[in-house]
Design a protein around this nucleic acid. Structure first.
Length: 683
DNA sequence: GGTAAGGGAGGT
DNA sequence: ACCTCCCTTACC
């Protein structure tokens, strides 16, 4: 290879990796795309080229096709280039401030494709949000707050789209620090839901803090779930494999369409919120969101379909978040004991559940959608081992086509139409009517059904929200009755959520998945889970990533151990080897902590109580339980150690119900994971 | 009542 | 990650 073609940037300490010198600021140029500094004299391409473009792209990025970044400009740009250089050279500015100033200079920056409605006010909103987040979290590609953020193991945050474009160009190193991106992260990036909610809440806090206090977003846990699925006497296996359903908590009839609102939720009086998560399909069922615990479609062939689950069962499914292509059920031989047979053996027809979906399509009914972690090919599936409610969609069209396996499958185009923003977007508002995406496969489709009449569920331009334009179909089933005793539950939690200040909630969103407190030195795993560095390391205390093997006095090659993420079964041994703090996240947490402390001088009674409960449990020395559990390298069983005996009784009861295993959502997972870890090491 | 259904656990 | 078993639920 010709020597001159080797191009290297400056390393983390600012030293040029080519000439090994540490150049002065005026001799370095920072790529506007990947934010990597380069030593100008060591660049192969002539310096004059800088004068022709407003935004300089480093050799790594210059081959790129990002339409937003390759803004072609007029010849009057040399002043701007000079101004950019001046910013670069300004020692009084931090790197973040430099990036922001440069961004301001380049104010005519092209927008990302789509979503026109947010562009008008976009700039203003982004700027106020920047005040809160300090620009710390900005995507290094587009320099905006990450849209659908993903986090690399080296702790850098990017938009999903920007990241995927980068990967699409064959890049396998972090655009910011050049660390290697693991293959799995490259092929299956998962959205970092912690960042999503933080950004959205920051936006809300700037727009109207008052009205936002009514909204509570659940991204991780559906706390306070007293009744659990149980194992009958007939069932020989413990756990939920053969479990019968627990109590249904909502009062909606089983054939109820649309979002489940507070009036149907006597226990919590909040309804089922977008982003709410359950441990499994049985729990999801208990909140009336998707009733069948096995089937992917809930519906009746002559009445319509109320909900669907995306859980990776059909390879033809295609998920784009706000819209997706769904495959009908059937066409597989599941006779005998088979529960999973990926092989199609006959054509699907528009009957049974598939017909139910078609009825919902024709009438424009809202269909609730849940996504399961088992859907592996979608970036929009939850990263945690949960089932998540993502809001209502309409089926705009359906048709049949030959599936990947040759047999005909029923296909449905789902488009989101919910008044709440989706769990992966930081938008402050829900959906607006959007044009239908182009569907190439429609060319080969047969039996195409399009809605002819006006949809029952539609967007009201005057009110600016989705609503029933025609009365919803009358229920043909009995309304579910709920024990009045259950109504008292969780009132306190609701009160707390309402009274918490926006900043407190921002902080709460930064909770470590192990200690449940605001993260200290946050790390983000490739599977998009966030922990304190110490908690994360503690979870693997005494375990090594490799096993030394000896046989007959000679040392064999070391064997790599599997170390599972404390929250999901993903192997994080490589990540653990080179643990990188998510500094961008850490900076935000620090500044929020500071602001929160400044406001501590005059807290209300309620909010200070909330704080004690939710946030600052680990700041005092009294909570020895935490340290003990950490030393055991086992995460605490439940995030609220000081609970009343009432809560403990509930937990004990549920343990019996589930065959002796702890079943509260987070804790089960954590306990299971650590068990698995032990398995891995013994084997 | 027959039977399909994107479940879950345990073993390999 | 795959296979196998066992069990519940609700449509028709």
């Amino acid at each position: 290879m010709a020597h001159v073609s080797i191009q290297l940037p400056c390393d983390g300490d600012g030293a040029c990796m080519r000439c090994k010198s540490t150049p002065p600021p005026e001799e370095t140029l920072t790529c506007t795309m990947c934010a990597t500094p380069w030593h100008v004299p060591c660049l192969a391409s002539p310096i004059e080229s800088l004068e022709s473009t407003l935004q300089w792209h480093c050799p790594d990025c210059s081959g790129d096709v990002l339409p937003s970044a390759v803004a072609v400009v007029d010849g009057n740009s040399s002043k701007l280039v000079a101004a950019i250089k001046a910013i670069e050279a300004d020692a009084s500015l931090t790197e973040k401030e430099k990036a922001r100033k440069k961004q301001e200079l380049v104010s005519g920056r092209a927008a990302d494709d789509g979503d026109i409605d947010k562009k008008g006010k976009g700039k203003e909103v982004e700027n106020t949000v920047l005040d809160v987040l300090g620009g710390n979290l900005n995507c290094s590609f587009c320099m905006q707050l990450p849209e659908r953020p993903v986090t690399t193991p080296c702790g850098h945050n990017f938009c999903l789209k920007c990241f995927q474009k980068w990967i699409g160009q064959g890049k396998r190193t972090c655009a910011k620090c050049r660390s290697t991106i693991p293959t799995k992260m490259a092929s299956q990036p998962r959205i970092n839901s912690t960042l999503v909610s933080v950004i959205r809440m920051a936006k809300l806090s700037n727009l109207n803090a008052a009205s936002s206090s009514q909204k509570v977003y659940h991204f991780m846990h559906n706390q306070d779930r007293p009744d659990k699925a149980f194992t009958t006497e007939r069932a020989k296996k413990a756990g939920k494999a053969n479990a019968a359903s627990g109590k249904i908590f909502v009062t909606t009839p089983p054939d109820f369409f649309g979002p489940i609102t507070a009036e149907y939720d006597p226990t919590r009086n909040q309804g089922v919120l977008v982003g709410e998560c359950w441990q499994d399909r049985l729990e999801c069922r208990q909140w009336g969101t998707h009733l069948p615990h096995v089937s992917g479609i809930a519906g009746q062939s002559k009445y319509g379909a109320q909900s669907v689950a995306l859980s990776g069962g059909y390879e033809d499914d295609e998920d784009h978040g706000e819209w997706f292509l769904y495959t009908g059920s059937g066409g597989r031989d599941l006779s005998g004991n088979k529960r999973t047979n990926k092989a199609q053996s006959f054509d699907q027809k528009f009957d049974k559940m598939n017909e139910a979906l078609r009825v919902s399509c024709k009438n424009g009914y809202p269909v609730r959608v849940v996504r399961s972690h088992k859907e592996k090919r979608s970036a929009y599936a939850p990263a945690e081992k949960v089932v998540r409610y993502d809001g209502v969609y309409r089926i705009e069209k359906c048709w049949r086509k030959a599936g990947k396996q040759g047999f005909k499958v029923c296909r449905y185009l789902f488009v989101r139409c919910d008044n709440e923003p989706a769990p992966w977007t930081s938008d402050e508002h829900g959906d607006r009517p959007r044009p239908l995406p182009p569907i190439p496969e429609l060319k080969k489709a047969t039996d195409v059904t399009e809605r002819k009449e006006n949809p029952s569920w539609d967007f009201d331009e005057e009110e600016g929200c989705w609503k029933w334009k025609k009365p919803p179909p009358a229920s043909r089933k009995q309304v579910n009755e709920v024990d009045p005793k259950d109504r008292k539950r969780s009132r306190k939690a609701m009160r707390q959520a309402r009274n918490m200040s926006v900043k407190d909630r921002l902080l709460k969103e930064f909770g470590c998945l192990i200690c449940r407190q605001v993260m200290n030195l946050p790390v983000t795993t490739p599977c998009a889970h966030n922990f304190c560095k110490s908690c994360f390391e503690g979870a693997f205390a005494g375990k090594s990533a490799v096993t030394q093997r000896n046989r007959g006095g000679r040392t064999l090659r070391t064997r790599k151990n599997v170390l599972n993420c404390p929250y999901c079964p993903t192997d994080v041994s490589d990540f653990l080897q080179n643990l990188q703090v998510n500094r961008e996240l850490m900076d935000v947490i620090e500044s929020l902590k500071q602001k929160s402390e400044e406001n501590q001088d005059c807290p209300t009674e309620e909010s200070s109580e909330d704080q004690t409960d939710d946030l600052v449990e680990n700041s005092g020395g009294s909570e020895t339980e935490d340290t003990e559990t950490k030393d055991d390298s086992k995460p605490p069983p439940e995030q609220k150690p000081k609970r009343t005996s009432k809560r403990r009784k509930v937990d004990a009861a549920s343990q019996v119900a589930a065959g002796g295993k702890k079943v509260s959502p987070s804790s089960t997972l954590l306990v299971q994971s650590s068990d698995e870890d032990v398995e891995c090491f013994s084997g």
